[in-house]
Design a protein around this nucleic acid. Structure first.
Lengths: 142, 142
DNA sequence: GTGAAGGTTCCAACGATGGGAAGGTCAAGC
DNA sequence: GCTTGACCTTCCCATCGTTGGAACCTTCAC
């Protein structure tokens, strides 16, 4: 419970980032190399945990590792223009929006197709027809 | 332009599935092994192309390879109950919906944060604050 | 001392796709 | 015949973020 240096497991619990991922982030250079104990264990300060939490929050918002690298740089730079942070966030929001629209289009098509599928023991199925032909199925199996 | 057997490139053009992916699908067993010419070239019939188009359509709707495996089985099975196809489609639609909601939540948060960020040369930034603290930033920087 | 819990590194996998190297084949033109 | 270029083959590697496991070492409590 002290705020002294902790091992990776405790840092993981405190930050919400798994030990596996902490090591990974260190490997790819997203976070700086952790201090080590005499026996080689990584040691983490409250500050380190703070950084890890930042990373986790950013991941939760869907930022990529590259973007988080930039965000960390901006966070640490006291003279950052908030303009740059905002631009990064807006660009990401746009990307999310694009993806959302793609998924929505898929969902719409699926629901439309499913609505016309009897969903019983009979084999006729507009869903399969659509996949086979690429065409929306005919008016309806009358 | 004939409908005779074609090489992988032509099958790729005709189906919309890249040659790379056709080979990959064969490797993982999604599609059956293609016939070969004397010199070892893969040969595709109009039927094969039809199957490839089916796979592409399913991918376009976001089905996973596993699901497409099932869909192909149902497609080929003349005695399939449409119930099973519908269930598969609906389950996928649900998964899409879940994902959409996750992305929308991210987007909402990002837009809210960005709305409160000046986006100028000043360093204060509620976006970074939120990432650092996990808390929505205070009312506003007055 | 023994065992559990936790640390270390390294290697591999997921899903779907693309890039590229190194080499064989086929058709056309000369 | 020979060359050229388009096409094919297999194989390995990379992406992206995350997880799992093996083999081994350290710490700590009993």
């Amino acid at each position: 419970m002290s705020d002294g240096p902790m091992n990776i497991g405790e840092a993981a619990r405190a930050s919400g980032v798994s030990a596996k991922m902490i090591r990974h982030y260190e490997n790819i250079g997203l976070i700086s190399r952790a201090a080590r104990s005499a026996s080689g264990y990584r040691r983490y300060s409250g500050n380190d945990v703070h950084t890890l939490r930042f990373v986790r929050q950013a991941r939760n918002l869907g930022f990529s590792i590259r973007q988080i690298e930039e965000l960390l740089g901006l966070w640490r730079n006291q003279r950052r223009p908030s303009r740059r942070v905002k631009a990064l966030a807006m660009a990401h929001a746009e990307a999310l929006d694009t993806r959302i629209r793609e998924l929505q289009a898929m969902k719409r098509t699926l629901r439309d197709l499913a609505a016309h599928c009897h969903g019983d023991e009979r084999p006729e199925c507009p869903i399969l027809e659509r996949l086979a032909t690429g065409e929306p199925p005919g008016e309806r199996i009358r």
